[in-house]
Design a protein around this nucleic acid. Structure first.
Lengths: 211, 211, 211, 211
DNA sequence: TATGAATGAGTGTTCATTCAT
DNA sequence: TATGAATGAACACTCATTCAT
């Protein structure tokens, strides 16, 4: 078996290239021709693997959300924050935020698609359940319809002052550094401080109150 | 006899409709036909007023930034924070944030265009100079190349934990309310609390240190 | 007003060319590019006038059926067969069969589309009501659901031994003449005799019985 | 071990499926993918057995005409109408019309292909020699160039008022019954009467004259 | 100012066909 | 015999833009 032209490899190359180009130009702005060329496959081959342009997007999204959920579930099953919460939380965040960082292109696409009226749902909100309030007790990924006001408040804080800034940071860091003459490590540090002095402050205050 | 029809009015209607549709579908996703139809003008008339699709976008942006800047300059000229800073700051924020809220469609377009690689510059960053750190001494809108680290840090905080959450709130509020069963006033209040307990906390702490 | 590039003219040219090419290649086999080229219009112009390829077909059909029906109605209103039936019938047939002959391309398309499973309905059958049994008293174009067996029998005779042979003759005459070394007038005469000795015989016998 | 699979069976399945789908959608409208799927064979296997899409059509046609001719020749060899003509004729017609009925799909394809300008020849006319005037003396399938006018007239009658109605009946019977609320046996009987009172009338009259 | 008509260059998608195994 | 992967050439349809009036 020569590793020359492999089936799954082609499909993956299409998926990877599409991810990159969707992130660069937006879903609407991305061109199948361009994806084919950059992935070094025949344009028709894309339609051999995917029903349509949108089907590529769907697969990108579903893979991302599947992995995200799996990651979280795996963590919860490993014990969650039951014991050694401090340590575990840092470990999880490291893992999860790292995963998000590695998937900034998908996040960018998700963000853009959430802004346009094209998609019915707002895929961005699906992140709330995963990254937002970490499970107290094995909560479902689906938004509880009967959440208390306090829980709603927490969702809002988590999303708008935690998730959104982080994703924005991931999406814009290169452009920021180019524009404001900073190196990526510098920005990384500055952003870390920013979060510590704003969003994390909120968590600390909450903990204080709860004790 | 007057020149037949409503000359300037047509142009404005085109601009308004384009703004709305660009915000809905994204610049790439928006169609000139669609804009013409919704603005109730002939498609060719759009090309009488604007050189190209991109020229509409440009005018939208430049108008927005001109107004933003004018607003700020006007405020500075009125005395800025020199006296009665507390009061003045609230007044300014009220005004300025109100202006942003009224222009959420343009903000949405700016945000989207800042994410795609299409535009050379990142129009979103131009907001930093206006809304971020209010002028110490009549600073230019252009990023100072020799800003100190402390200033850079402040920019980062202001942008990622102040501007970005606010704009995101403006862009997503309807979808959020639809998805999480909240009313807009509820979300407005929750978001206000969120900002108070995170971003504003940072300002309070800074003030404390500076005294 | 120069007669150069006229709106309605272009549309008509598209329609005429499409009719010709649909008849030659079949609806599926016809190519929009080909139609555009032969009609000497830009391909996009076709979509300026017609929503889709199918819309062209629809207009072709509806025009034909509208005209057919109008012709019949007009004839009925002019007195039908009330007086001087012999004479009137010949006049009508001359007119109507002439109209069909002039529209052999549409008939060909109708026939082909009636054979493929593509179209839900069978446009060919719509001819039955018009050309088949000529109105006794202002009958509706729609097939009566409660027709007697005798009427059904008549429909069958009219369609399969009257309409079908005539349409087939119209559709195949050139090919027949080329293949069997006949001139068109020769075939015309032979076909006339054929109909006289078969289909018309039936009518004569019926008349005889009814008296 | 046998050569793996059902070799000839696959080919036949392809042929049968192609016949069905060509008849349903027309040759141009039929898709190789569709045929492959419905025949439950790999698309490439079709190209193992057939040089091209058209080659399938060719095989379908040539098989049909070979069988038709064989049937006729066989009949002639068995004595033709020499003795007991009445009886023999009925037997032959029963057999032959039955064969046509069993091959209505091929007939449909032949009809459609005869209408489009795609095929050079008009396969439909090849039926004339077989089903039309039964051989006086072992005539060739090719049209005699020096046929008398009387013979030409007979061909015309036979084709346009005999073959065409019968084939049309075969092609349209389901649709007719669906549209005009008749059962197939009802239509069968009505069509039989129609032919008796038109086409067969012609033969009777001819016989009368010849005696 | 305003418009109906027209167009070149795409744009996602499909098709018959071939290749490598 | 059989197949999954791959491809060039269409294919219907769209888009921003221009022209003539």
């Amino acid at each position: 078996m020569r590793p020359e032209k492999n089936s799954e490899e082609s499909k993956q190359r299409i998926l990877d290239t599409a991810k990159k180009i969707f992130a660069e130009k937006g879903y609407t702005g991305a061109r199948i021709d361009h994806i084919a060329k950059e992935a070094k496959v025949n344009k028709a081959l894309i339609y051999y693997y995917f029903k349509s342009k949108e089907a590529i997007l769907d697969e990108l999204f579903s893979t991302f959300f599947k992995e995200s959920t799996a990651m979280l579930l795996n963590f919860v099953n490993r014990g969650g924050f039951a014991e050694n919460p401090e340590e575990n939380k840092r470990k999880f965040e490291e893992e999860y935020l790292g995963y998000l960082a590695a998937n900034r292109d998908v996040l960018k696409i998700i963000f853009m698609e959430s802004l346009t009226g094209n998609s019915q749902d707002t895929p961005l909100f699906r992140l709330v359940d995963i990254g937002g309030n970490i499970p107290k007790e094995q909560q479902q990924g689906v938004p509880q319809p009967d959440e208390t006001d306090a829980e709603k408040q927490e969702l809002v804080v988590e999303f708008f002052t935690g998730i959104i800034p982080y994703i924005s940071y991931l999406m814009l860091k290169e452009k920021w550094c180019g524009h404001f003459s900073m190196t990526e490590p510098e920005l990384y540090q500055a952003f870390g401080i920013a979060m510590k002095e704003t969003h994390e402050q909120y968590h600390k205050n909450r903990e204080g109150k709860n004790h």
